[in-house]
């Protein structure tokens, strides 16, 4: 009979839960039946050890990259014991809940307050490129850069609002705003970071991938650009088109500046990606993760309380 068989782990998934009261990553281990387990800490990582349970799903890592959890690894330590290791980017408090049913779900809730702490008191200016008559790049089917970058910028704004960071957009609608006005806004508002959102345009429709421009001769901008690009590529799994220094941001003294070219809109596979709301969200998450990592690694923030 089904209920007498050894329980099997059939799936592991995770989700960021955002609401007014709560901000955490929920990791769920699903199994065909209940088993005995213990949850503890190994360094920053959280480890669930289950006894009398086997893996039905492939063992090994599952990428998460949500800014707090990098991956979750399932491992069969003995023929009748399974270990789930949650690899953390930052330390976090946790609690565990189990619910009965088919499947049985064991949920580990990880607090994301560290991320909120890293961004506390920061003012981020997001600049969705182009707008109005200036449509920017055009996709081979029909998409326009000015529209898709606004969708990604809106998702990114949401992520910053969630952690109570101060966030501004240079444009909220389809308006044409000269570049010098956008840069001036960063100065006037005393922004801590200037994040431009663009897509790349190329004569060769085969060229695709992610690139990040940064303010030339600014160490901070280069550091930020590297982190944003790496985190975006982890999320989107697109080709790395590299980092490029640009002189056009030189007027923004003292403010780190990056301009993200999320994809090449002229590549028709990547134009297809730009149609998906899930893709906009993932792109925003990648940029957000890069920025939090920047604040986690820069000197001024090393002493952030956990």
């Amino acid at each position: 009979m089904f209920s007498q068989k050894q329980p099997r782990i059939t799936n592991i998934w995770s989700k960021v839960i955002e609401s007014d009261e709560a901000y955490f990553t929920k990791v769920v281990v699903e199994s065909t039946g209940a088993y005995k387990y213990s949850v503890g800490r190994q360094g920053n990582d959280i480890v669930l050890i289950g006894a009398g349970v086997v893996a039905n799903m492939p063992t090994g890592p599952i990428e998460v990259n949500d800014g707090l959890v990098s991956d979750i690894t399932l491992h069969e330590s003995r023929p009748d014991a399974a270990t789930v290791t949650i690899h953390m980017e930052h330390p976090a408090g946790y609690r565990v809940e189990s619910s009965e049913g088919i499947p049985v779900r064991t949920a580990i809730f990880l607090e994301r307050s560290t991320i909120a702490g890293l961004l506390q008191g920061k003012k981020i200016l997001i600049d969705p490129g182009h707008g109005g008559k200036d449509v920017g790049g055009k996709g081979p089917v029909n998409l326009l850069e000015k529209n898709v970058v606004l969708l990604i910028a809106n998702e990114l704004e949401q992520l910053f609002r969630q952690v109570d960071a101060s966030v501004l957009l240079t444009r909220k609608g389809d308006e044409s705003i000269p570049v010098h006005n956008r840069l001036k806004m960063a100065k006037d508002e005393r922004a801590d970071l200037f994040i431009g959102i663009h897509t790349h345009t190329d004569n060769n429709c085969k060229v695709g991938g992610t690139a990040v421009l940064y303010k030339a001769s600014s160490r901070e901008s280069l550091d930020l650009a590297k982190l944003v690009k790496d985190e975006l590529i982890r999320k989107l799994k697109l080709t790395d088109r590299g980092l490029k220094g640009s002189r056009k941001f030189a007027v923004l003294e003292g403010i780190p500046v990056v301009e993200v070219e999320v994809v090449a809109i002229t590549n028709w596979v990547e134009e297809g990606l730009l149609r998906s709301p899930t893709f906009h969200k993932r792109a925003a998450e990648g940029i957000f993760n890069g920025i939090t990592k920047y604040y986690a690694t820069t000197d001024g923030n090393k002493k952030v309380k956990v």
Binding site: T10, N11, T32, M57, P58, I102, P103
Partner: peptide
């Protein structure tokens, strides 16, 4: 139906 079990597989 008493339960729906999503099954994770390799790629």
């Amino acid at each position: 139906i008493v339960g729906k079990i999503p099954i994770r597989t390799h790629v």
